[in-house]
Write a protein that binds this DNA or RNA. Structure first.
Lengths: 127, 127
DNA sequence: CCAACCTTGACACGATCGTGTTAAGCTTTG
DNA sequence: CAAAGCTTAACACGATCGTGTCAAGGTTGG
């Protein structure tokens, strides 16, 4: 015996077997498998599952939030895009007159984020 | 006139007025207000709202995900806890015998994460 | 071989998300 | 002042999340 089966793991972690499978399907833990496909929870998985429970409770967040945080942690593109979006000052820098604010700070992202969006065909808004 | 009203902003951004308010309620943008409480969308807000749309589409994620990412970005405790949880090796380090794996790597988090959880009163599991 | 356990898949159901719509009440403006 | 626009609050409704339960079938072990 190399670890706990799913029902045993459920017992010691407080999650239901159903939930352990669900958590796995969310990509948060991948227990090893026996040759025939039975899940085997080692001490590492057990610990992760327990702390996951505390994480959710302590910060009152959803399982899907943690799943997204994982994406965020492992996808540099996503991280960069989000970071960039957040650090956008919502204030206007004083220097803009009431007239030309339509074009202020416009192109900065139109290249950064929309690089792969199709060139808008509708609404060319010609002079 | 210092900026666009909510309906005008909706027109130029593609969101519905309803959605602009919802996005605001999610804490993602806070347009300025007139003395009487009317929302005023400046160029910064408009840009943020547009790029938000592209963000969601490009990475196929939910609004609540971005809201959580904001929490993640501004709450160091949350960030630390998540980071720590992720970098947990799921593998066992070879050296553990089949017998004592019950206590291996156990206390590391029990102090780190559970510092403020009440001492379990139920199930003392006495010998 | 039979009971106990595992696996995947599905149905169910309350809670929350994302969104539209509508009502009741101010504000702005022609 | 009346029409048009804004604000908050609420109801509604499909979609997804989190969770339990149950069915049909493979595996394990006395």
């Amino acid at each position: 015996m190399e670890g706990l089966t799913i029902n045993e793991a459920a017992e010691t972690t407080g999650w239901s077997p159903r939930m352990l499978r669900y958590i796995e399907s969310a990509g948060l833990i991948e227990p090893a498998r026996t040759p025939k496909g039975y899940r085997i929870y080692g001490p590492g998985e057990l610990q992760r599952v327990r702390t996951l429970r505390e994480l959710l409770a302590r910060f009152d967040c959803a399982l899907s939030d943690v799943a997204f945080a994982k994406r965020h942690a492992s996808d540099p593109e996503l991280r960069a895009a989000l970071e960039h979006w957040f650090e956008e000052r919502p204030e206007r820098p004083e220097g803009v007159a009431s007239g030309d604010w339509l074009s202020w700070e416009q192109q900065k992202h139109e290249r950064l984020l929309a690089m792969d969006t199709p060139p808008r065909l509708t609404e060319p808004t010609p002079a």
